[in-house]
Simulated scan of single mutants.
Amino acid sequence: MSTSFAVTMPFEEYLAANWLMIRRNWLWRGVIRYLLVLGPILAAIIESGAWVRDGFDAARLVASLLLGLAFAAGALAVTFLWFSWSVPRSARKAYAELKLDGVATTYTFNQTELLVSNTLGTARLPWDHITTWTENTRMILLCRTRMMFFCIPKSQVDVGELEALRSALIAANVPIR
């Protein structure tokens, strides 16, 4: 038995989907990795001249690590500011290039595959071609790759159809992230 529903993708939903992908792929784990890698690298750069000149000093090393982490946190703040400017800009550009404004997209699925179609084309995908899926209160993203996804705004889909989609994803062992 197949389940089918149709959605349109206004820019606000597309932008929210892009933010969800960034949070899903980068935020928190990425922030921690960023600080744990960049902080010690910056500390080593700060400390390298003193090690050659004065030798090893544990107190100075701790101070350099804290300073390195502070610089890394500052770089992270700049990165977040950059994302705040660049993500809406690049999403707006991609949205215009995709020509999605007002285009109804139909999702049809069963236990073996997902069919996505609109006036621009059709994709028939076995569930193993969906690499992961994620959701928040606003939408479900079905990810083809780390950067390519199908976005389903929950506000446009019946709760029963969303539950059937979740069940099909789980039955097909598509990982949730």
Rank of each mutant, 00 (worst) to 15 (best):
M1G: 06
S2F: 07
T3P: 04
S4Y: 10
A6T: 15
V7P: 12
V7I: 15
T8C: 05
M9T: 14
E12R: 10
L15V: 04
L15P: 05
L15N: 03
A17D: 07
A17N: 02
W19I: 03
L20M: 15
M21Y: 05
I22W: 09
N25H: 03
W26N: 01
W28H: 08
G30C: 04
R33M: 05
L35D: 03
L36C: 03
V37A: 08
P40E: 07
I41D: 10
A44K: 01
I45T: 11
I46D: 08
I46S: 04
S48M: 03
G49F: 01
G49W: 00
A50V: 00
W51P: 00
R53M: 01
R53L: 02
D54N: 00
F56R: 03
A59H: 13
R60T: 10
L61V: 12
L61I: 04
L61A: 14
L61F: 11
A70I: 13
A70G: 15
A72S: 15
A73E: 11
A73S: 14
L76E: 11
T79D: 08
T79M: 13
T79V: 09
F80W: 04
F80H: 06
W82K: 10
S84C: 04
W85R: 12
A91Q: 00
E97W: 07
E97P: 06
L98E: 13
D101M: 09
D101T: 11
G102Q: 13
V103H: 09
V103C: 08
A104G: 10
T105P: 00
N110P: 03
Q111T: 12
L114T: 04
T119F: 05
T119D: 11
T119Y: 05
T122F: 09
A123D: 14
R124A: 13
L125H: 05
L125M: 10
H129S: 08
T131H: 05
T134W: 01
E135A: 13
E135P: 05
N136T: 03
T137N: 02
T137G: 05
R138G: 10
M139N: 09
M139C: 07
L141G: 14
L142F: 04
L142T: 00
C143T: 02
R144P: 00
T145C: 06
T145A: 03
M148L: 13
F149C: 07
F150Q: 05
C151Y: 03
K154P: 15
S155E: 15
S155H: 13
S155F: 12
Q156T: 09
Q156L: 12
V157L: 09
D158V: 10
V159E: 15
V159R: 14
G160P: 02
A164T: 13
R166Q: 14
S167F: 04
A171V: 08
N173D: 08
R177F: 13
